[in-house]
Design a protein around this nucleic acid. Structure first.
Lengths: 265, 265
DNA sequence: TTTTATATCATACACTGTGTTCGATAAAAA
DNA sequence: TTTTTATCGAACACAGTGTATGATATAAAA
């Protein structure tokens, strides 16, 4: 199933947005129109409509039967879209799913920028972001379970892993500079921290959320703080960790859910 | 691919050994012979031969192209075995793979018993078992990478996770008794510890083992010890952890490798 | 509006891989 | 030897994938 290489962060292959972006069209007679330099083309309404329908169908089906069990035909039937149309847009269902996440990532990065700017003006309300993450996950556990739980493929988790890793490795390297001889390579610490958070979320979902989000937030801190202290060799400021690590996941997940799982809507 | 439920510890469905055990035969005309009460039947030589060939073929192919890419036909060709014969023994290739691990688990448990007995007599040589684990993994990294790395399915990792979890949850619960109010539920600690170890192994393999086993051993201790101290609320004896956690993996892996990957041999 | 461009549709097709069936044959056990 | 049964091989139905093509519908451009 996942024999082919799963490129987590491709070079913006199918670019992020569904309404206003270039379409890598695979169909025989189709030619990429590209007259005009840097002239932003308005997308054909049919394109965004089709993509939106397919994304909606995929998301609905994921909740219903889990990602792995979905066939391309299922998506076609649900979206009421022709077979060749599907393959004109995406290579396979993996690419369709990744496309959603690519889109969300762009949205998230923009929001992150806004947050960073707001933070610099001074008054930020000091959220407990890990807690919000678990609350949110719990509220939409059906979908989360479908995409992150045991029954689903590992692609999404790998994507998230890579995503968080990329986000964290910079700050971690920065922190590490204060140490002369790091006992643990920063790459390993980062990998370890991300694995811990994701495995905690997965555990929580797979076990039907036996504890409230508050408890999970506490657990995450108890488990990760001493390790980070030991690895970095100094007291961690929770703010830094929250901002870069859990905050990202939360915002990422939030957008995925809040927009009704259909980016083009 | 992995739509169906992956039963990690089935009720001894295909029972452990290949030469001297009952065969759950799926074929139409086949009837389970069962005359005689508790009378251990010698297995038909053809059965053990066939199974051995199929296991050998699977293991060779895993190293060559990774588990996911293998088709049943590949196994058939390599093992020089008929199609119907394969399905007379196993439901699919997942079951064939699990069968290997089930077998190894039995062997491992017997050896564990022997070790435990030897330990009680007094003189044990105090191995650093985590270190041995990494050394061993490194020596056979091609196979390990194929079964535990990025390119392979998650089935084996889930199996190992479940296995180690089962092994650890008992001792952990015991240790937890000394605490009045555990800040972190023992199930979560155990899940976390196992995830950490496996993610560390995976990272090491996926990054072509950039550090020597000695370093990985050190890293594992640095990362896991403070967390366990925080969670259990008291100083951990390394002996306990080594014996129950990493020792299991090492022995488990060792047998898998040492026996040439073909249990029936 | 008319013209042009192109996205979509329906259908058909080749292909890969799965899992089953069944009679004939070979090999092991009794 | 006789009986039992594991294996073979070939055929088959089935599900799913990804491609190709001409006709049609619809959007954009003139």
């Amino acid at each position: 199933m996942f024999d082919k290489k799963v490129t987590i962060f491709p070079e913006r292959v199918n670019n992020q947005c569904f309404d206003n972006c270039s379409i890598p069209d695979r169909r025989a007679g189709f030619v990429r129109q590209k007259r005009g330099f840097m002239k932003e083309k308005k997308r054909d309404r049919r394109v965004s409509r089709t993509r939106r329908l397919m994304h909606e169908a995929l998301m609905a089906l994921i909740v219903e039967k889990g990602y792995e069990a979905i066939t391309v035909q299922d998506i076609l039937d649900r979206a009421d879209v022709g077979r060749s149309t599907f393959y004109a847009h995406y290579q396979d269902k993996d690419e369709l799913l990744l496309s959603s996440f690519e889109h969300l990532r762009t949205l998230f990065e923009e929001q992150q920028q806004a947050l960073l700017a707001a933070r610099q003006t001074g008054r930020n309300p000091e959220l407990n972001i890990v807690l919000e993450l678990f609350r949110h996950t719990g509220e939409h556990h059906r979908l989360y379970k479908a995409i992150a739980g045991k029954q689903s493929g590992e692609m999404i988790m790998k994507y998230l892993h890579r995503y968080l890793y990329t986000l964290l490795i910079g700050p971690h390297t920065e922190m590490m500079k204060e140490r002369v001889t790091p006992p643990v390579p920063v790459e390993v610490i980062t990998h370890h921290l991300v694995s811990s958070l994701l495995s905690l979320i997965t555990w929580w979902l797979d076990n039907n959320m036996p504890y409230p989000p508050e408890k999970m937030d506490e657990i995450f801190r108890i488990l990760s703080t001493p390790t980070l202290e030991a690895a970095f060799g100094r007291k961690m400021e929770e703010k830094i960790m929250s901002e870069y690590a859990a905050g990202s996941v939360m915002a990422f997940y939030s957008q995925f859910i809040d927009r009704g799982c259909c980016p083009g809507k």
